[in-house]
């Protein structure tokens, strides 16, 4: 019995000493540089971005170059400070405002990308194309070639806004898939979409050449083209196509409009008008 007691005592002492020998150092007394992310002295631009994007929608706008946010094997340069406000202001007016007006703040805050990364130069690809924008996982969107952004160059501005709407549409359909019959309307989806002309694409019912690369791209290109070109612009584009292609466009258009209404309760044509008005008034 005594032996048992001694053993028990030993076990208790052992356990007790383990707990007694706790290290004193607390984790927050350790100061690791850079632990909280990038830091710099904030200026007027930072305060503006905070008030327009970060506080209302929790969107982070990274305009200062961060090498690891971008593809490592490409040569890229930062954006000009003077371009940041015009670019982001256009995005706010033509993307954030219309969606919120039509679908409400909660909708927008739920689905918007939370991180914008701004790059000054285009990204040059080995197949003689340049990348204007990329999006990752519904979370981050990278915009390129912003150093050439000029508000009066409407085609350039529209190209950039097209990218934003394109990527946002991806988030929407990756959340709720569009009707599968959409994929069967056109044929001839191909990975070498840039080998074909726009006319060839239109003939097959693809609104842009890139739409031809995959059904998902087709869907979002329809949405972004309809929004950024507006009703008149869109009608003008499909008027160029042969009659059987026009029928395909109308079918796709109908699916898009139905998709927005059924799944998100958005009147697509009203959204289209709002985006168009915003672009015209930039």
């Amino acid at each position: 019995m005594k032996q048992m007691q001694i053993k028990l005592l030993m076990v208790f002492i052992f356990l007790g000493s383990l707990m007694a020998c706790s290290k004193d150092d607390k984790i927050d007394s350790v100061n690791i540089p850079g632990l909280g992310g990038e830091t710099w002295q904030k200026g007027p631009l930072d305060f503006w971005l905070d008030s327009v994007f970060t506080k209302p929608y929790n969107i982070e706008v990274k305009y200062r170059f961060e090498r690891y946010e971008l593809t490592l094997d490409k040569t890229l340069v930062p954006v000009m400070e003077s371009k940041v406000q015009p670019v982001m202001s256009s995005i706010q007016k033509t993307w954030i405002a219309p969606y919120i007006a039509e679908a409400g703040e909660t909708f927008f805050k739920t689905y918007c990308q939370k991180q914008f990364v701004l790059v000054g130069s285009p990204q040059f690809n080995s197949n003689n194309t340049i990348t204007l924008g990329t999006a990752e996982g519904g979370r981050k969107i990278v915009l390129f070639w912003l150093n050439d952004f000029v508000l009066t160059d409407k085609p350039f501005v529209k190209e950039m806004l097209h990218t934003i709407h394109h990527e946002f549409a991806h988030i929407l359909h990756q959340t709720i898939m569009y009707p599968v019959e959409y994929k069967r309307i056109s044929t001839g989806y191909t990975g070498s979409w840039n080998d074909y002309t726009l006319d060839e694409a239109l003939e097959r019912g693809f609104i842009t050449q890139y739409a031809r690369s995959a059904p998902d791209e087709d869907f979002v290109e329809m949405i972004s083209t309809m929004l950024v070109e507006g009703k008149d612009g869109y009608e003008a584009i499909i008027a160029e196509a042969p009659d059987d292609a026009q029928a395909k466009f109308r079918q796709k258009e109908e699916i898009v409009v139905r998709y927005f209404m059924e799944n998100y309760n958005i009147d697509f044509y009203r959204l289209q008008t709002r985006v168009q008005d915003a672009i015209d008034n930039l």
């Binding site: 540089p33 850079g34 990038e38 830091t39 710099w40 305009y63 200062r64 170059f65 961060e66 490409k74 040569t75 890229l76 340069v77 930062p78 954006v79 000009m80 400070e81 000054g120 130069s121 285009p122 990204q123 040059f124 070639w145 150093n147």
Partner: peptide, 25 residues
């Protein structure tokens, strides 16, 4: 900005005259 990457570094993080020499365009 000064940042501790592999080593303490100076990053010219918005476009300037220096970037003309790095511009891929």
């Amino acid at each position: 900005r000064l940042k501790a990457v592999q080593r303490p570094s100076i990053l010219f993080d918005t476009y300037s005259y220096l970037h003309l020499l790095s511009d891929p365009d």
